[in-house]
Design a protein around this nucleic acid. Structure first.
Lengths: 308, 308
DNA sequence: TACAATCATGAGGCAATTTCATTATTTTAC
DNA sequence: GTAAAATAATGAAATTGCCTCATGATTGTA
């Protein structure tokens, strides 16, 4: 007989649950254990004397009562977020500068919606993208030519802090009629006789080369292209294979334009971090930007996982 | 360095604080100690790094940051209340019956707004007032001629539970040019040579008679009237004095029509309870009605205090 | 100036929430 | 269809965080 009142914590749990479809996934999203959420949800159901979900199903379904609370959560979370932004502005002022250095091409796909949302919330913050693709985006931070850098590794450096954004899987894409299209998992050797299509960036920025091919001593033919869609087209036209984030190619997979395979037994996991100058790490608009990026990305991109 | 998240509990505290104007009063309203609220508010201020109030003033003033959170509280509390009502309806259904037996004349003043609000929230509940003034309203409950009785004392009785509503002070009112109009505190003896004007109800229902005059053996002349305004008029016309709830006569006092005095050193405190059949005590619409009554009354009537 | 009321603060207790360890259940894969 | 994997439930222990108590500080008032 839990007598605990409804709290915002519960509403946040419900939102995570609705997005993830399972208790254990939602638990990761709110940085608690599965057990904690299970207890929490049971307490909620006891409190209202109503079942909130049907748990015998995957993804789990909300009952009408669960839907009602979820609706409340959606209404309230926006209001709370707005108020907390206002509090932050009251404390630190409206204005600021946020120049973003980007290392990876596909980043733009998820960066744009986040930037749009952020611009609405912080109209007085000067938002900019530092153009060009720099091998050392963190250097731009310290020389104050950028205020935030997106990078795929957190190399410790004085005066710089790294905030995890999210993790995702890189998959190999190939033409649908490729001889190995049915192979669910590719190893480095399978690539030896292929042409690898990638963005025109140094090898250290290509996870497939750095983490898989180089260690195995495999060195396939290469071809580069600037644009994601162009790479997809080349792959579909049997001009080679490419490694891309799953979330970037899912639409093309769904439409059957190309096929995909896992890279290595456990897949090629990639991570994204935001690097900031230590002094800026507590700035409200910085924190809010990072929060917005995560929120927007998880809402938009399929197959992401949390990164601690 | 409290790291605690904003929770609904905090918002409820802010609402109480805004209504009461002081931490200690607000603490009573939310059934916590003054200390608890002081800690809670300090934690909030630490969390946002902003002062929320100026405490060196009475009533305490909200800072802009405090106002912003208060605005959030107002937005959110309505939504939460609505959702919780829906949850209750999902559990117990929409319909029900709520016939109210009223013992005191002035009750109608605060009952009406509460009933109006309730009707909006529970359109399918049949709301009614059991007319006439019964000496034993609780009897109506047990014979199922009423479902809720308003009374000023909680006499234990099998199958009946009492829910406290609120407490208030009865004051003596007199003409402005009454010889004793300047006397701040009246004792029973001061009434010996007065004419007491009251509603036409048995003496046991008149707190002044039962608690003050009878114990002192004082027996003034009497005169009765059904209507509150009529009693006020008679008092103003020097036809006698009357004992009325402070909240009922405050408008007339403010406009200078009449004068008032405290009854006895510590004042004549009156209390109001709702009596319910035990079986009905957990019904959602009953609980919500009681909540609405308290909420509306505290928001509308001056000088109420909480009753546990 | 003293008194009353209100607020702040630190320590201690207690209850609510989380984690841990385990079992039960469901889904997936072969 | 069964085995394995993933997911959820459960109870006990541990932690955290909240509240109360006791007291001191501050403000307003007679």
């Amino acid at each position: 007989m839990s007598q605990s009142q409804l709290e915002l914590r519960h509403l946040k749990t419900l939102l995570a649950l609705a997005e993830c479809g399972s208790v254990s996934q939602a638990a990761k999203r709110v940085f608690l254990t599965q057990s904690a959420l299970s207890h929490q949800l049971k307490a909620l159901e006891d409190h209202y004397g109503l079942a909130l979900f049907e748990r015998k199903t995957q993804p789990l379904r909300f009952t009408p009562a669960g839907e009602r609370l979820l609706a409340l959560a959606r209404e309230v979370s926006g209001l709370v977020a707005g108020a907390e932004r206002d509090m932050a502005r009251l404390r630190e002022g409206e204005a600021g500068e946020l120049r973003i250095a980007v290392e990876c091409h596909t980043c733009f796909d998820w960066l744009m919606p986040a930037m749009d949302a952020f611009r609405q919330h912080w109209p007085a913050v000067e938002l900019d993208i530092v153009s060009g693709f720099h091998a050392d985006p963190v250097g731009l931070l310290l020389t104050r030519r950028a205020d935030l850098a997106i990078c795929s590794e957190a190399e410790p450096q004085d005066g710089v802090v790294y905030q995890p954004l999210f993790a995702y899987e890189m998959v190999l894409i190939m033409a649908k009629d490729h001889p190995l299209a049915a192979k669910p998992v590719w190893q480095a050797d399978d690539l030896a006789s292929e042409t690898l299509i990638h963005y025109p960036v140094p090898d250290v920025m290509l996870d497939l080369v750095r983490k898989v091919l180089k260690p195995a001593g495999v060195n396939p033919a290469r071809r580069t292209s600037e644009l994601t869609v162009a790479i997809i087209q080349l792959v579909a036209s049997r001009r080679g294979v490419a490694a891309m984030p799953f979330w970037a190619v899912k639409p093309y997979l769904d439409r059957g334009y190309i096929a995909s395979a896992r890279i290595g037994e456990s897949g090629l996991q990639s991570e994204l971090y935001a690097a900031l100058r230590q002094d800026d790490a507590l700035l409200a608009y910085m924190r809010d930007f990072l929060h917005t990026v995560r929120e927007q990305s998880f809402a938009t991109l399929p197959g992401l996982s949390v990164l601690t």
